[in-house]
């Protein structure tokens, strides 16, 4: 399965079925991030309930320095 992750094609490994799986696979579970799935902003509680499908658009953002 290939998704668009932060604007780039990303191949999702077998067994990665939900946003929670994806976040865990990317080692981001303990980081301060926010995930948007097909333009819907998710909270952390949503991650296990949102399934991934081919062609999904996923954005993973963080807070960076800014004024």
């Amino acid at each position: 399965m290939i998704i668009q992750l932060n604007g780039e094609p990303f191949t999702v490994a077998e067994g990665t079925e939900t946003v929670a799986d994806l976040v865990a696979a990317l080692n981001l579970a303990s980081r301060i991030i926010v995930v948007e799935h097909n333009r819907t902003v998710l909270t952390r509680d949503d991650y296990p309930h949102v399934g991934l499908q081919d062609g999904d658009q996923v954005e993973i953002v963080q807070f960076v320095g800014g004024g």
């Binding site: 992750l5 932060n6 604007g7 080692n27 981001l28 953002v61 960076v64 320095g65 800014g66």
Partner: peptide, 11 residues
């Protein structure tokens, strides 16, 4: 803070 895409390859 600003909100930006995370560089998942350089996390």
């Amino acid at each position: 803070f600003a909100v930006r895409r995370m560089n998942i390859y350089q996390q």
